[in-house]
């Protein structure tokens, strides 16, 4: 695959990535609404895909995009996700039209560019949720107890998004989010 990419003059990525799309059809089970769109493993194929899909800010409420390493499904229950967690960015409603698409694109670039250095292997993927009450973007990592790795990823992510020091982001373990009551999630780390 690497040779093929190079022969074609494309830039190979460290990982093959899978883009998923979720549309909330209440007449179906949750998993039936989650669809694999396609997979890619070069920079050029990423851009070809990105330029062909709808911007996140134009999706209907209840939709999600997810980008995960090949072999990892975008759900807590996946073996590679279940001990992990996520750095969560919650946006105000007005940010959908000003910053959402930029934040999501920067998130995707962090992933495919392996911008978390030696901790890039800890990254599983990223999810964007389009919701009426406020959109959310999250980077998912594989091991919530890996403080060093999780905080490095959070620090680099926050820097790449250009969030000011006054804006706090929190990391939640999936195990805690799955058992939470109401809308209060337990935050393991804050930056």
């Amino acid at each position: 695959e690497l040779l093929q990419a190079e022969v074609l003059g494309k830039h190979p990525l460290q990982n093959r990535w899978a883009l998923w799309f979720f549309k909330n059809d209440k007449s179906k089970m949750w998993q039936a609404n989650l669809r694999l769109v396609t997979k890619f493993s070069t920079v050029e194929d990423f851009w070809a895909l990105y330029s062909h899909i709808q911007l996140a800010s134009k999706l209907a409420a209840g939709c999600d995009y997810s980008l995960f390493k090949d072999g990892i499904e975008p759900m807590w229950e996946d073996n590679q996700n279940k001990r992990g967690g996520r750095w969560l960015i919650t946006l105000a409603r007005q940010q959908r039209h000003t910053e959402l698409d930029r934040f999501w694109l920067d998130t995707l670039l962090c992933l495919i560019g392996e911008m978390f250095d030696e901790y890039s292997d800890e990254v599983c993927g990223a999810v964007i949720n389009i919701r009426t009450k406020g959109d959310k973007i999250a980077i998912w990592t594989r091991e919530a107890e890996n403080r060093e790795g999780v905080t490095h990823i959070g620090r680099v992510y926050k820097e790449h998004l250009g969030l000011s020091q006054k804006v706090a982001i929190g990391y939640q373990a999936h195990a805690d989010t799955a058992t939470k009551s109401g809308c209060l999630g337990k935050t393991k780390f804050v930056l």
Partner: peptide, 20 residues
Amino acid sequence: GKKQYDREFLLDIQFMPACI
């Protein structure tokens, strides 16, 4: 040996023919 790309490089090639 890890394949890393920075943001500027990735954005620079967004509209190259092979990407469209």
